[in-house]
Design a protein around this nucleic acid. Structure first.
Lengths: 141, 141
DNA sequence: TCAATAGTTTAGAATAATTCTAAACCACTT
DNA sequence: AAGTGGTTTAGAATTATTCTAAACTATTGA
């Protein structure tokens, strides 16, 4: 049996990592795969750490943070700040917005088309718009 | 000279505090006055602490945090989360949005009318919209 | 294939913002 | 003036995150 056949499940994430200029290390491959297989969701560093542990990967928290920041930089995930206290990382990097359930401290995607922003101001002189974030804060009533 | 004339400068904040059901203590009066006199701005707890110190008030950080949360609850200020790491408190409680300068970690108001959101989704069953936050993240280019 | 090198991971310490604790304090009523 | 219950405080505790320096490993070139 050819080597490649065994390694195939990781082939795709290896390519993604390489394309991003990140060395495909054991830990980065595991994390990239976990994130890819997680579907659209919003994870904290601790949650990803737990999922990695569940999947049998003992990866230090510092590495989780490093990887999440590198993945954010590379556009593989997106960091969302809605809760002073901790960052969420969104595996859905397409253009969209969020509900934030303040009591549960949980995020839920809003499809791009469901929020229509028909006017935004010019950014001040010398500033470039990175992103327009819309967060609808809700509480259970 | 009547007593009231001397106390007058604090009369207004005392009334505000009472109306909010907050006992007008020395520290709360000082902070409420500082915030009111600060004009529209975005302060962290540490910054308010420093301003209080500058004004000659030695108030513990724990008290600053307590007061800011009570003031937020009472609608005297508004808490803004744009930066995992620290909260900003906005003395402008009218409906408006923000630019966030990611490199300087600073906020700037956007007038309510300058952002037009023409469609927002229904909140999920059992949830009530608290607020719709629009944050335009910019960096100096 | 091997060694050198440069990037990576790690545990644990360090930091930063915030919250907690329990004792001292003080505003308000009577 | 005294009692009561909310408030303030210093300092310890907590939480999320970053730093550090040593051990490790992917990659490159001989």
């Amino acid at each position: 049996m050819k080597r490649e056949m065994v390694e195939r499940p990781y082939k795709e994430v290896v390519d993604v990592l390489k394309r991003c200029g990140l060395r495909p290390t054991r830990q980065r491959m595991a994390l990239a795969k976990l994130l890819r297989d997680a579907g659209d969701c919003h994870l904290t560093a601790e949650e990803l750490h737990a999922r990695a542990a569940d999947a049998g990967h003992r990866i230090s928290l510092a590495t989780i943070y490093n990887a999440l920041h590198q993945f954010t930089e590379a556009g593989l995930v997106r960091e969302i700040v809605v809760d002073s206290g901790c960052s969420y990382f969104d595996t859905n990097v397409s253009d969209h917005h969020h509900f934030f359930f303040e009591d549960r401290r949980e995020l839920k995607d809003i499809d791009h088309g469901d929020v229509v922003i028909s006017a935004v101001p010019e950014p001040p002189e010398g500033a470039t718009v990175e992103r327009v974030d819309v967060v609808i804060r809700v509480r259970s009533s």
